[in-house]
């Protein structure tokens, strides 16, 4: 099912090879497995721009260059960005990082090189992720960026992987739990027929 995904906000421009752990969210939150957005948001991009947490507004855009969010694909930075309802526009992103971003519902456009002649830090833009149409409201210009796959858009508008799975279950009630399976260490083994692969 295809849903629209349009956003409007201000641009925060970052460069090439922008590291997740060093530039976006301190590594310590990954080690501590912090997933609460409230704890993560005050640290988002702070190591790069100490003023970022104070000036970012919900709906804003993070503009990356090549290899945006490189390094180990820790999810904490993406959780904070998704919770702030940010969007990402970048030239490229490591595949695993892109998967993590989509899995927490962060809208993104990759393969984009809008260039300084279209947008600069602080510009207000409006982007339709379905078509790639982008308007710079500050400068009164427009351009066409590569669109976001409808498959990924659908996951993002559902809020990420868990949201998409909840939506799937709603559409497929036959897979829903009637009685949950109780797993414990005292319930005894339940035999399962073993089906070995046959050798030719």
């Amino acid at each position: 099912m295809e849903k629209s995904l349009k956003k409007r906000g201000y641009c925060h421009v970052f460069g090439d090879r922008f590291s997740l752990d060093e530039g976006i969210m301190p590594f310590k939150f990954a080690i501590e497995r912090v997933t609460d957005p409230k704890k993560l948001i005050p640290h988002l991009f702070k190591s790069t721009d100490p003023d970022f947490p104070g000036k970012v507004k919900p709906g804003d855009f993070v503009i990356g260059g090549q290899d945006f969010a490189c390094g180990k694909p820790h999810v904490q930075g993406f959780i904070a960005m998704a919770a702030l309802n940010l969007g990402v526009i970048c030239q490229s992103m490591p595949y695993k990082a892109m998967r993590r971003a989509v899995s927490v519902g962060l809208p993104l456009l990759t393969g984009c090189n809008p260039g300084a002649d279209f947008l600069q830090n602080g510009d207000e833009i409006e982007v339709d992720f379905a078509t790639g149409e982008a308007r710079n409201l500050t400068r009164g210009t427009s351009t066409r960026l590569p669109s976001m796959s409808p498959i990924l858009r659908d996951i993002v508008v559902n809020g990420g992987m868990n949201g998409a799975l909840a939506a799937w279950l709603k559409d497929h009630p036959e897979q829903a739990a009637v009685e949950p399976v109780a797993l414990s260490d005292s319930s005894g083994a339940v035999p399962v027929s073993f089906v070995p692969a046959r050798k030719s």
Binding site: L165, A166, Q175, A176, V178, P180, V181, L183
Partner: peptide, 14 residues
């Protein structure tokens, strides 16, 4: 993975 799907309300895999 069983725990994750059970938490989402799944009893059956596709």
């Amino acid at each position: 993975v069983h725990g994750e799907l059970a938490a989402l309300g799944y009893a059956r895999v596709r």
